[in-house]
């Protein structure tokens, strides 16, 4: 294993131990999806075209999205608060790899939402788990998680470079939730919004996961969704890598790595 991968793995493990006892992220992973999942099940279950897997997948995505939005936008400022930002910045390790590893730890933690969402569907409401394409769902989940992690990586330097933007990021939770079609089809929204949704990795995550779980998408449809998942996530990751360099350069010029 190369040094960078080992560092990323260690960073993920360190952060996993920290977020596992973080009350706010526990709320994002457990309580918020529980509320979303249960209320949506009650709202939709009497409809003739009701598909419980749609709610399960949407609930899981909402938990993963919220966790990565909050953790990503606070990833660097959290290090500053704990006084470790200077130590990370003054170490020879790549700052991008360190924060990337840490956010990967949070991403793994956010998968608790998926387990919870299945629990809501099967245990709480007694629906059987019926996944049309389990293998494709696994691939979709993997790619969705990578793309959402990349989105979190994009938010991390953005929130530090432009603090006002950072504050606004926190209110993106519901708009992206709605624009991505986690629990309600995007087709319900006006047509002019569709191009915007196509730019969002969470949208393609929802398309791929819903499509694989319900079997509504054939392989070519899934391949298209996977391609755009990787493309949108990849673009954000490339921009993020530049912004990470900018964060450190600006902080070294302005002297803002420490709190004091």
């Amino acid at each position: 294993m190369t040094a960078a991968l080992r560092l990323a793995r260690q960073s993920a493990w360190v952060n996993f131990q920290e977020v596992a006892v973080n009350g706010f992220l526990l709320f994002a992973v457990v309580w918020q999806p529980l509320f979303v999942g249960v209320t949506t099940m009650y709202m939709l279950r009497h409809r003739a075209d009701f598909d419980p897997m749609y709610v399960v997948v949407g609930t899981a995505l909402s938990g993963i999205w919220s966790t990565l939005l909050f953790a990503g936008s606070g990833a660097i400022s959290h290090e500053r608060w704990t006084g470790t930002l200077e130590l990370l910045a003054a170490s020879p390790a790549s700052f991008f790899v360190v924060i990337g590893g840490k956010l990967a730890g949070t991403t793994i933690f956010s998968l608790g939402s998926l387990v919870l969402a299945f629990g809501i569907g099967t245990v709480l409401f007694g629906y059987p788990v019926k996944i049309a394409e389990p293998g494709w769902l696994a691939v979709s989940l993997l790619l969705a998680v990578v793309a959402l992690w990349a989105t979190g990586m994009f938010f991390a330097p953005l929130a530090i470079l432009w603090r006002t933007v950072g504050r606004f990021l926190l209110v993106l939770e519901y708009p992206v939730f709605a624009l991505s079609g986690f629990l309600f089809p995007v087709l319900l929204l006006p047509n002019w919004i569709v191009p915007i949704t196509n730019l969002l990795p969470p949208y393609w995550a929802a398309v791929a996961m819903h499509g694989a779980a319900s079997g509504d998408l054939d392989l070519s449809g899934l391949l298209r969704a996977w391609f755009f998942l990787l493309l949108t996530g990849g673009v954000l990751l490339v921009i993020a890598s530049r912004l990470f360099v900018e964060v450190l350069t600006r902080a070294r010029r302005a002297g803002t790595l420490a709190l004091s």
């Binding site: 040094a3 360190v14 990370l88």
Partner: peptide, 15 residues
């Protein structure tokens, strides 16, 4: 983290 785990992590940071 424990003191030992802190040191292990910082050792990784310094390769």
């Amino acid at each position: 983290l424990s003191g030992r785990d802190n040191l292990r992590y910082f050792a990784e940071l310094y390769a």
